[in-house]
Computed example of a mutant assay.
Amino acid sequence: MNLSARQVLVVSEGHTEVRLLKRLFEEFNLLLPDIVSLNANLYKLYLEYESYECDYSDLDITAVLRSCSQVGTKDKEKLRGKSATDFTDIFLVFDLDPHTPDFNEEALRKLLSHFNDSSDVGKLYINYPMVESFYHVPHAVLDGNIRTFPPIRFTLSELTAYKKRVNLEGIKQSRRYTQDEYKNVIQRHAGIVSLITEASVRSTHELKVQVGLFEIQQADIKSSREAIVVNTFCLLIPEIYPSKCHLEEIQKD
């Protein structure tokens, strides 16, 4: 498909996702998507869908967002007169937030099961533990080194201060990076997903891999109250624009 023919809608949790999405799309010279912020976490989206008391497949996400009190007026205006069929791709990008009181494992499974196709109802990407994980990589990753190893782990007990940890250990959130540097960071996260799920790097955006990632991470959280830091929503770039952000398989030692 001609890149200019793509009409992409991204439903984000908040403003941090919006800023990062814009930076990525601009640096890769891509047409900016329509971005609508829910201004609430994934569990609020779940409650919104549940409030209709019907099968999720009967709902059009654009109509749900237009009627949602959490969505701002300007964002609702972006969806005026539109339906899901007006977009070639729809993505939802949200945080796992396993430390919050409203964390709901079964709700996540239901949402992952429904949002399973970016070209239809939409596709859900979950960040572990939150969107700032994109920047939580070793500095050497920017130069194309240590693309996958070693993985970084987080514990539930530290998550209220996780953003401070990212500022101390990760790359700068305020800095704009080159296209190659962003590619290296995305490659790193794809490599981590591959490491966790044993899937190929180039398949890490696939739904079955993302579902497998959730189940493995959730099992670790339940058993040890910790899991591996990995950002998944950045994979939407190589998913829909593989020629712009080509992923390489990691050579195993």
Results as ranks from 00 to 15, higher is better:
Asp86Phe: 04
Ala107Cys: 03
Leu111Phe: 01
Ile186Gln: 11
Thr178Ile: 02
Thr155Asp: 13
Tyr135Trp: 15
Gly212Lys: 06
Pro101Phe: 06
Val185Gly: 13
Glu77Gln: 12
Glu215Ser: 12
Asp75Pro: 00
Val230Ser: 01
Pro101Asp: 07
Ser224Pro: 02
Ser12Tyr: 07
Leu32Asn: 14
Arg23Thr: 10
Ser37Cys: 12
Glu77Thr: 08
Asp143Thr: 15
Leu65Trp: 01
Ser133Glu: 05
Asn231Phe: 00
His114Phe: 01
Asn167Leu: 10
Pro129Lys: 09
Ile146Lys: 13
Val141Gly: 00
Ser133Pro: 10
His114Ser: 00
Asn41Glu: 12
Leu31Met: 13
Thr100Leu: 10
Pro138Met: 01
Val36Glu: 00
Ser51Ala: 04
Ile126Tyr: 06
Ser200Gln: 05
Ser223Leu: 06
Asp97Leu: 03
Leu32Ile: 11
Ala140Trp: 03
Ala190Ile: 06
Glu27Asp: 14
Val131Thr: 11
Ser57Arg: 14
Leu79Lys: 01
Thr204Asp: 03
Ser133Gln: 09
Asp58Cys: 14
Asn127Met: 05
Leu31Lys: 15
Arg175Cys: 03
Tyr56Asn: 03
Val11Trp: 01
Thr16Phe: 03
Tyr162Met: 05
Lys244Ala: 07
Tyr162Val: 08
Val137Tyr: 04
Lys22Phe: 11
Gln187Pro: 03
Ser174Gln: 13
Phe28Arg: 06
Gln173Cys: 05
Asp95Ser: 08
Thr155Lys: 15
Leu42Gly: 05
Arg80Ala: 05
Tyr46Ala: 10
Glu48Ala: 02
Ser37Asn: 14
His246Asn: 12
Thr88Asp: 08
Lys76Phe: 07
Val71Glu: 00
Asp95Trp: 09
Tyr52Glu: 04
Tyr128Ile: 13
Thr100Lys: 14
Ile152Arg: 12
Ala40Val: 02
Asp75Leu: 01
Gln210Asp: 09
Asn2Ala: 06
Ser200Cys: 07
Asp102Ser: 12
Asn231Ile: 02
Thr148Lys: 15
Tyr43Gly: 02
Leu108Pro: 03
Cys245Met: 10
Asp55Tyr: 09
Thr178Tyr: 05
Phe28Gln: 05
Thr73Gly: 14
Leu47Cys: 14
Gly122Ser: 11
Leu65Ser: 01
Leu30Val: 11
Leu24Arg: 06
Ile126Glu: 10
Ser200Ala: 11
Asp86Thr: 05
Ala107Ser: 03
Arg202Ala: 02
Tyr56Val: 03
Tyr49Pro: 00
Gln7Met: 05
Glu50Arg: 02
Ile126Ser: 06
Lys163Thr: 10
Asn127Gly: 08
Pro151Gly: 03
Val93Gly: 03
Gln217Ala: 09
Lys44Gly: 04
Cys54Ser: 10
Ser51Tyr: 01
Ser203Trp: 03
Lys163Asn: 10
Tyr128Arg: 15
Gly212Cys: 07
Thr85Met: 09
Val71His: 00
Asn29Lys: 13
Glu105Asn: 12
Arg147Pro: 15
Glu226Gly: 04
Ser57Asp: 14
Ser83Ile: 06
Thr88Tyr: 05
Val131His: 13
Ser69Met: 11
Glu17Val: 12
Ile196Thr: 10
Leu42Arg: 03
Lys22His: 15
Ile146Tyr: 13
Asp253Ala: 11
Val36Asp: 02
Pro151Gln: 06
Asn231Gly: 01
Val36Lys: 01
Leu59Tyr: 02
Pro151Val: 15
Lys208Trp: 04
Asp97Ser: 04
